[in-house]
Design a protein around this nucleic acid. Structure first.
Length: 637
RNA sequence: GCUCCCAUAGCUCAGUAGGUAGAGUGCAUCCAUGGUAAGGAUGAGGUCACCGGUUCGAAUCCGGUUGGGAGCUCCA
């Protein structure tokens, strides 16, 4: 019987029923057959050996595609599992799950002895051996009973649990390669010899199925690429990313420090304080232009306020408490309740709304010790927070304005970002109908602005749905920074109201928003983003005056004072060192402008300018240099 | 919080048979007075994170505590 196969280019070819992806690839070209590692049958990824009984749309999957790479990495995970079983014993190693992730794969295993980096090397060697053996990888369908029997014989409780949890009617498959087999949906490469370049990266603990009530397994991370050069490039990227680590750069550039006396709480050194002040001032100016009013609220407020706001119920495990004069107080984990009190301090008319209250609010949250990570995850941080009190009819316009503000600010840093809409979580507060209304409002704005977004079902805050802005850092990790949250609950809890046109009381709606999110974390992200070479407007020291020798002290002082008077953050390096030495040091400090002074400059009232990233850009007179630096600062480039 | 790893001079790190510590850099002093990424000499600087145990003797071995790292979980 003949069947018709439709290829991606629209061509239709006839084959005998029972043909395979492999055979179809071969019929197209021998090269394609060599490169085929899987196929897509009506959009579903399958093995190259998969028999095709009926007419279908078929696509040959090669390593160049995303699907192909995933198959490749998945097979590498199996290869690793096989190597581990060979080394440590078939029954001694219990396999959990071994999925493909962003830049590689991992496998969770249960094994008595903790694995060390030396073990990883041993496993890699064994993996190489199995590649040499070029074992064919084949698929077989088994019944649920048979699967339970096989993994029961293997004494592998993890796989048995997986099998038992698979829904009825699902086809169970096992993939074999030599003596090794694994329960797996597949598909996989045709044989182990197809794997060319891989590397095991690290081993760490991971709870079985991500639940801390379950047993802790060992997770081995690895990565694999079709070509050695690609693997090398990836490993090189990881090295480069390490050099940009904000914890390392923060120390080197003296931006901030940490102390055993306050784990997870950053100390800002003078350089970091300058940077942070610039970030705050930048946001502050834009907010004033947009008619926000800035406030400050107490760090510690009575516990009953937090009970009223719902934070006690939903958030107390992350809060710090204290007792003073027999009264219980809490250190604020969020700024909203304070802003609610400010709103209630006055009677408001509908004519006043929207009211936009902003605060650079320092909050404290008790994070797990194991969750702390430099500036990225801390226990006290400053939010560039604001609460907008609006009429229901103003919701969409106000949200639209916030989105524009966020976009404007991110553009200055050159960040690309992703937008996510998070909907009602399980422990939500309030009427589901209000939630639906709020979610619809957020969707409307995003759609109207033509912004692409992903929906995260159930990931909203307990008081309302939110739009989150995720930026991508140098390590390609995505960080949630900006957020816009709609809140119908807080106005209820605090009995907020305004007097309407009808002279009656009405409920305003609250919009929470942040752009940097955490200023502290934003500084961490910026440090990695710029690799410590901050643009002039953010640089703690914008210019350094460097004399060729101590003979020019007077002129150096004169120049320095002129720059200071122009508002430039300048330092003079009057140490009795050689020019090259001082330049090297300023270079390591990543200072944007070095102003070199010697006899030529003094006698002509000029400066020799050395610009970061460009080198010596020649001699300029003092005022022109000042203007050039000021221009660069203003440009924020 | 949990699992594994780590903690030596301000910083980056050696110290791999248990015999009370070393380099580079930085710092101080002196010499050298210089033109775009490191001139030379001398010197100061350490309860080897903390507490306890084993031992004649512990930076080194064992236990605990604190802090850090890689993850799990949660979030900004």
């Amino acid at each position: 019987m003949l069947i018709q196969i439709t290829l991606p280019d629209g061509a239709v070819r006839e084959y005998a029923s029972g043909t395979t992806i492999e055979a179809i690839a071969e019929s197209i070209s021998p090269g394609l057959r060599k490169n085929a590692i899987a196929g897509k049958l009506n959009g579903k990824v399958v093995d190259v050996y998969h028999p095709i009984e009926e007419s279908a749309a078929v696509e040959i999957v090669t390593l160049d595609s995303k699907d192909g790479l995933e198959v490749y990495r998945h097979s590498t995970a199996h290869l690793m599992a096989q190597a581990i079983k060979r080394i440590y014993g078939n029954k001694e190693v219990k396999l959990g799950i071994g999925p493909v992730i962003e830049d590689g794969f991992y496998y969770d295993i249960d094994i008595v002895n903790p694995l060390t980096p030396e073990d990883l090397k041993k496993i890699e060697k064994e993996m190489e051996r199995i590649i040499q053996e070029n074992l064919p990888i084949s698929r077989r369908v088994i019944s649920r009973e048979k699967a339970l029997q096989i993994f029961g014989d293997l004494e592998d409780p993890l796989k048995l649990e997986l099998i038992n949890d698979l829904p009825e009617g699902v086809e169970l498959t096992i993939y074999d390669q030599g003596e090794f087999f694994d329960l797996c949906r597949g598909p996989h490469l045709p044989s182990t010899g197809r794997i060319k370049a891989f590397k095991l990266l690290s081993v760490a603990g991971a709870y079985w199925r991500g639940n801390s009530d379950n047993k802790m397994l060992q997770r081995i991370y690895g990565t694999a690429f079709p070509k050695k050069a690609q693997l090398d490039e990836h490993l090189h990227f990881l090295e480069e990313a390490k050099k940009r680590d904000h914890r390392k750069l923060g120390k080197e550039l003296k931006l901030f420090m940490f102390s055993d006396e306050a784990p997870g709480m950053p100390f800002y050194l003078p350089n970091g304080t300058t940077l942070r002040n610039e970030l705050e001032q930048f946001a502050r100016r834009l907010q004033i232009e947009r008619e926000y009013k800035e406030v400050r609220t107490p760090f510690i407020m009575n516990q009953r306020l937090w009970e009223q706001s719902g934070h006690w119920e939903h958030y107390h495990e992350n809060m710090y408490f204290t007792e003073v004069d027999d009264n219980k107080f809490a250190l604020k984990p969020m700024n909203c309740p304070g802003h609610m009190l400010i709103y209630k301090n006055d009677l408001h008319s509908y004519r006043e709304l929207p009211i936009r209250i902003a605060e650079f609010g320092q909050v404290h949250r008790h994070e797990f010790s194991g969750a702390l990570n430099g500036m990225m995850r801390v226990r006290t941080f400053c939010q560039d927070d604001a609460h907008l009190f609006v009429l229901p009819s103003q919701i969409e316009e106000e949200i639209s304005k916030v989105i524009s503000l966020i976009d404007l600010i991110y553009q200055v840093f050159g960040f690309s970002y992703r937008v996510e809409l998070s909907t009602r979580p399980e422990d939500s507060m309030g009427d589901p109908a209000l939630w639906d209304q709020a979610e619809t409002a957020l969707k409307n704005v995003l759609d109207a602005k033509g912004i692409a977004y992903r929906v995260n079902e159930g990931d909203g805050a307990f008081y309302g749905p939110k739009i989150d802005f995720h930026i991508l850092d140098a390590l390609k990790r995505s960080w949630q920074c900006g957020t816009i949250q709609l809140d119908f609950q807080m106005p209820e809890k605090f009995d907020l109201n305004y007097v309407g046109e009808d002279n009656q009381k009405h409920r305003p709606v609250v919009i929470h928003r942040a752009v940097y999110g955490s200023i502290d974390r934003f500084i961490g992200i910026l440090t990695e983003h710029y690799a410590g070479a901050f643009p002039a407007w953010l640089s703690p020291v914008q210019a350094k005056v460097i004399p060729v020798s101590i003979a020019f002290e007077g002129y150096v002082t004169e120049v320095t004072e002129k720059l200071l008077a122009a508002g430039i953050r300048v330092e003079a390096d009057q140490r009795n060192e050689k020019l090259g030495y001082k330049i090297r040091e300023a270079q390591l400090e990543k200072i944007p402008f070095m102003l070199v002074i010697g006899e030529n400059e003094r006698s002509s009232d000029t400066l020799s300018v050395r610009k970061r990233g460009e080198g010596d850009i020649g001699t300029h007179d003092i005022d022109a240099t000042i203007q050039m630096i000021l221009q660069e600062i203003r440009n924020k480039a």
